[in-house]
Nucleic acid binder design. Structure first.
Lengths: 226, 226
DNA sequence: CCCAATTGTGAACGGAATGTGAACCATTTG
DNA sequence: CAAATGGTTCACATTCCGTTCACAATTGGG
C-alpha cells in the first residue's frame, strides 16, 4: 500500500505513532512543493491533515491538494474542538474528520472506513519472513512472488512456524499448537508435513525449515546468529 | 427538511437534546416495523443508530434499513470506544460514525458534512469486479455484458462476496452476514447457493468463487499487490 | 567402522470435506 | 386451487488430503 501524506512536517508524534502502530506507511510534508518532491511513483493512498497547529496553512494545503489535476482522496482532517465551526463551508476540502486529541483506534477505524468508501483496498494482514508471505485473510501463501498451493494443514503449520522464526519446536509441541490440544496422533505426522512443505517451498527455500536432530524443527535462522 | 430516524426508542436524552439544539427534527423507532409506521410521506432524511445499548439489534436494524427497496442514507452510527472493532466488515452498514460520549458540536458537524456529502451524491451504485457488474439500484447483475438472472439470495451472496474480493469467508460468517444474524439453518445451504452461482456465472467465470478447503469460499483473486 | 537412533521418502488407506441431483416446503401468482 | 418460484434440506457421489506404515537414508556415538 502506498504511503499516506501527512501535514505538517514534522508530523505530530502522536499521529506518527498511531499510524506506525496500525501498520500504515506515511511521509510528511509541510507544503505543496515538498509533497510533490516526495510523492511516490504510484501516488499517495490518501492524506491526513493536522489543522490544529496552523489552521490557515492547513486549509490552504487541503485546497491545493483538492484542486490539483488529480484530486487527492481520501482526505482526513484532524481538528480540535474549537475548530468545529471552521469546517463550515469547507465540506469540499475533506472526506472525514477526527477530533483531537484522538484515540489511536478511532483514527484507525476512520481510515479503514474511509479507504473502504473510496474504493482503495484495505491493507491485508500478512505474515512475512524474507521472501515468504502469508496472507491471513485470503489463506494464500507465496514465496519470491510465486504463489504456493498449500493444503489446510500445510498452511497452518507454515503459519505457526513462520510466526516464531528461529525458535525450535518439538513434534509434540507442534501437534498440540497446530493440530489441537487433545490430539492423539503419531508424532511422525509432523515429519510428513514438513517434508511436503519443503518440497513446495522449492529447492532454494527448503532449508527455511531446519531439522534439529533429537529435538524437532526450526523455521528460519537460529537466534544465535549465522 | 424531513425528520431523522433514531434508534432506539426512546432515544438517549443526550442525543435527542443535541438534535433539538441543532435544529433537526427526528422520530425514534425501536424496530423496523415501528419505523415503517411513523415514516413520513417524503421519507427520512437520514438515520442515527445508537449501537452502544444493544449492539446486536442495532446492527440488525442497520442492515434492515440498508437492504430495503430504498436504502436509507445517510446513516450515522453511535458507538463507544470498545465497539470500534465491531465496525470491521460492516463498512456497508453506515456512512459515518461518532464516538460516544460525544460533544453536541461534533455530532452537528458530522451531520452537516454527511448531508453535504450525500447531497453531492458520490455513492457507488455499482459493484464491479473484472467482467462482473452489480447494479445495486435495479438488483441486476451482468458478466461480460451478459445479464445474469439471479434470485434474491444469489444476488445478495454474490454482492457480499464481490464486495470483499480475495477475502476468505467461512460458511458461518456468510450465513450471519448475508442471511442475517439470527439465522439457524444448516451451513450446507451456502454450498448449494455457491453451486448455483457458479452455474449461472458460466463455465468461464465459475472459478471466480473459489473453494478454500476446510475454511470456506473466496471471491476473485488475492490481493498481493495492494 | 558398525550399530542404533533418528529422520527422510514413497505409497496406500480411510475419512472428512465438498459437489451434485432431487425432494421438500413455504410463498406467491394467475 | 393449481402452478410456479425460490430457499432449504437430504442422500449420495466424488474428490481431496491427513494419517499411517514400511523401508531407505542419515546422523552421531562408541
Amino acid at each position: 500500500m502506498e504511503p499516506i501524506l501527512l501535514y505538517p512536517d514534522p508530523a505530530p508524534p502522536e499521529l506518527a505513532q498511531a499510524l506506525d502502530l496500525a501498520g500504515y506507511s506515511w511521509k510528511a510534508a509541510s507544503d505543496e512543493r515538498a509533497a510533490e518532491q516526495i510523492e511516490p511513483l504510484d501516488g499517495w493512498s490518501g492524506a491526513i491533515i493536522c489543522a490544529y497547529i496552523d489552521p490557515e496553512r492547513a486549509f490552504a494545503f487541503c485546497r491545493a491538494l483538492r484542486k490539483s489535476d488529480s484530486p487527492l482522496e481520501p482526505l482526513l482532517l484532524l481538528v480540535n474542538g474549537g475548530q468545529l465551526n471552521d469546517l463550515e463551508l469547507r465540506d469540499d476540502l475533506f472526506d472525514d474528520f477526527c477530533l483531537a486529541p484522538f484515540h489511536p483506534r478511532e483514527l484507525e477505524a476512520r481510515l479503514k472506513h474511509l479507504f473502504w468508501r473510496t474504493g482503495t483496498g484495505t491493507r491485508p494482514e500478512l505474515v512475512e519472513y524474507a521472501d515468504l508471505v502469508l496472507n491471513l485473510e485470503t489463506y494464500q501463501a507465496a514465496i519470491g512472488g510465486r504463489p504456493l498451493d498449500l493444503t489446510y494443514m500445510e498452511y497452518e503449520l507454515l503459519k505457526f512456524l513462520s510466526s516464531h522464526p528461529g525458535k525450535v519446536f518439538t513434534r509434540e509441541t507442534l501437534l498440540s499448537r497446530v493440530w489441537g490440544y487433545e490430539y492423539y496422533g503419531g508424532a511422525r505426522t509432523v515429519d510428513v508435513h514438513v517434508r511436503r512443505l519443503r518440497a513446495k517451498l522449492g529447492e532454494h527455500h527448503a532449508n527455511l525449515i531446519q531439522t534439529v536432530r533429537s529435538v524437532g524443527y526450526r523455521f528460519g535462522q537460529s537466534r544465535w546468529g549465522v
